[in-house]
Design a protein around this nucleic acid. Sequence first.
DNA 1: CGCACAGTATAGCACTATGGCATGAAGCTG
DNA 2: CAGCTTCATGCCATAGTGCTATACTGTGCG
Lengths: 322, 322
Amino acid sequence: MKLNERHLMQLAAVLDAGGVSEGAAMLGLTQPAVSRSLAMLEARVGEPLFIKGRRPLQATALGGQLAVQGRAIISASRRASDVVQGFVRGTTGQVRVGGVPFFIDAMISRMIGEFLNLEPGITVQQAYMNLPELAAGLEAHQIDLGIVPIGALELGSRFVFTEILPGRNIVACRPGHPLMRKRPLEAGDLTRYPWVAPLPGSPLMSDLQMILMSIGMSDLNIRYSGGSLMSVVHVLAETDALAVLPFSVVFAQRQDNRIVVLPYDIPQPNRSLGILRLTTAARNPAVERFSGYIISAFDDLKHVIRRHERSVIWGAGPESES
Amino acid sequence: MKLNERHLMQLAAVLDAGGVSEGAAMLGLTQPAVSRSLAMLEARVGEPLFIKGRRPLQATALGGQLAVQGRAIISASRRASDVVQGFVRGTTGQVRVGGVPFFIDAMISRMIGEFLNLEPGITVQQAYMNLPELAAGLEAHQIDLGIVPIGALELGSRFVFTEILPGRNIVACRPGHPLMRKRPLEAGDLTRYPWVAPLPGSPLMSDLQMILMSIGMSDLNIRYSGGSLMSVVHVLAETDALAVLPFSVVFAQRQDNRIVVLPYDIPQPNRSLGILRLTTAARNPAVERFSGYIISAFDDLKHVIRRHERSVIWGAGPESES
DNA sequence: CGCACAGTATAGCACTATGGCATGAAGCTG
DNA sequence: CAGCTTCATGCCATAGTGCTATACTGTGCG
């Protein structure tokens, strides 16, 4: 006994409106059209759905039960329309973000919070991942965008990369660290202190290797590894340990004054932090709003970051941009 | 942006099945039909719903969200079909019963319990009401059937009445009541004891008036009134009070041995207990199952009741039916 | 690289359902 | 009983739906 969903909707509308004419008007149809639909439904069911000759129109037990389902269909249909509306306007939907842990924790999660306030209809689903999983996730359409440091042209043309910050690394330590007062700083100084290693697999890990090579040491005294950003900051603040961190991460912590930049020049990776997306991705206004918000937020921050960078590393005051 | 519900259902089926062909088969349609429906939906939405060239077929964010609504529509439609199936078979639905309190409490509620066990898909909604409200409720289609004592042809042809028991009244008292040992019993004896009056408006109330007239008294010493059957039985059992009750009510309490029939002949009302229904009521198999069950249950009980009636009132032992 | 295969889209055609307009039928009200 | 409101019916146009046949596209294999 397959029933026509359209008929069920009309039944519900008519019962809710209290009459065929009213129900038809509510649906934007004419009375005869609805009247005939109901007759068809009644014929297919083989049982009366209405108690005849009553105002307002009254349903039989069966009619009432079917109307419940009709209402469910109507509301599902309305929700579907709302989904589409929200989608084209970018005011509804889901943004699935993947990103490297420290950068997400230091800067992006804060912006996500602001974004969620601006766009109450959008939900953000975030996962921690490094470049290989991220590229795979994008290709499998499991995430919509990734926030990663990436070298120019590192990936094929299937991806489009939007830079949001230069990927500048520094060595971080607690304020008042003994090395902060030592001039000049030499490579050997760095190896005399314990180190905090970043998460395995993260870009920072290979950066650390690069630094090791540049100062001609085979290994460091790594006393702590595997922690999230918050854990790393705590460890740095409580000990004399050192860590390689993106400058932006230290920047984000500037208010707390728990970690500072050690003014020692380390080799810089040739890459930028940015947003990675599929070239072929389906249009998704919610995702576009999100990435647009992140990019503009960093545009606003960029000169502040750069000025801060110079001042904390080289002790230089504010100066005019080149 | 009004979407076609049928399209949404097909979208859901296709995504659940993992392909157009499979989804079409699941719906009992051909692949081209579904393919075209999806193309129409996509055209109306104006956004891609699928990620092309992937097996199993993968939806875009929008496609997935719309499929959720499609699934809701499918399940509502399935429930509607189930409702109809259950209705025509009488295995599902609602039975709205109105009835006089004492009789419902004494006999019908027990049978409702048995019926609910037999028909797990049917729900019974019961209300206490006497004849006038009951007739009005039937005409307003607020109840499906009433269980009342009613005189032959008392109502018009708009109602059909099915007798289930003769409406025989008796005077009830506790076992060991002083009057149980007194022979002969005379009308004056009855007035020397307190009385329990039935619920105002109930048929028993007018029966009580009739008895008063027959024994030539203007009023009785009414000590308790307004109680439900359980309360009345308790009061009768704990005091020497008397009450007019239908014989069937006393019969139903026979196991508890808390009230008995006083062997005093009182004038009998010219009516029967039975089921009252509208002549014009829409067919409702669940209601029919219910009334059928009640009638057959009383058919089974009838000869037991009659035998018991004779024995408890006249002290006669079991005898062959006439 | 091309072939076979599976799966999907398109074309063409027939038919049903749906909707509108005009109009008839029925029930309630004064 | 007249008039009003409301529902049912007849008729026509058209959009949706379904089918078969066929073209297209991506995938895996030799």
